[in-house]
Design a protein around this nucleic acid. Structure first.
Lengths: 129, 129
DNA sequence: ATAAGTATCGCAACTATGTTGCAATAATAT
DNA sequence: ATATTATTGCAACATAGTTGCGATACTTAT
């Protein structure tokens, strides 16, 4: 059985995601680590964090992949809350309180959900673009 | 004002998407056109079809971008129905009847929605993987 | 404390995906 | 038929993500 280890790089990535109010892409995280480790290492760390349900992966409407730390009181396997993707500033934020309700098709087995709302976030809406 | 033209390549792409029961990626569409036109042309055709709301763009949980023809009786700007992305066969199908209900956060302006369910589709569920 | 086992890392090379500028081509309106 | 201009092909580029492998470093057992 694979045991997971805590390394300097993994701790740094977790820290970065904990502190960030918005979801971050691989390249954003890589820049923030400032040459602490290799580009590939960040990919592998993110994979592990996602597998361990410490971080979740969000994809916006353009196909941009971002990562955010979960703020659940206890670990959950399905992250069924909404995310908001701003078309102007391209920030992705978790809307923990917004949960979709829907009728599950009986012949499908649902194990994961991606619910992303897109448009203008409060910041960009105020600075009337 | 830009007028849109009907070309051989555009017609072919539209045909392919019309006939397909599942959403297709750029490379899948490119292969199906069989050297009818350049790779870049397919990208540009897909962009135009999306802009004209003839085709909609779907992103699955891995970040894979796919395209599907809309089967609306009349054109709509927000495609708020669900899509199902199978983790086994990687097919994406539209679940036209599954629409999420949710509470829109008042300070956000929502212009687009992506609601993707992921797991096992009926086919893969039956062949119990 | 030392050695063995193994998760993690760095590096290099590779694949896939998507974009841009520009000249050539072809669809459309007159 | 001709002029206009949307569309295309090509080449070159940019970005994202993956893989194999030898080196490193953390963990556990002795």
């Amino acid at each position: 059985m694979k045991t997971t280890r805590n390394t300097t790089a993994k701790t740094a990535v977790t820290e970065i995601l904990s502190k960030s109010k918005t979801a971050l892409s691989h390249s954003e995280i890589y820049k923030l680590t400032a040459d602490l480790c290799n580009r590939v290492t960040i990919y592998r760390i993110l994979d592990r964090l996602v597998n361990d349900d410490i971080v979740h992966k969000i994809v916006d409407l353009d196909g941009t992949v971002k990562y955010a730390k979960c703020h659940h009181s206890h670990p959950v396997t399905i992250h069924n809350h909404a995310h908001f993707s701003c078309e102007n500033c391209h920030e992705i934020t978790c809307l923990e309180s917004v949960k979709p309700s829907y009728i599950i098709p009986h012949n499908y087995k649902v194990t994961d959900i991606n619910f992303t709302l897109s448009g203008l976030c409060p910041n960009c809406l105020n600075s009337n673009i």
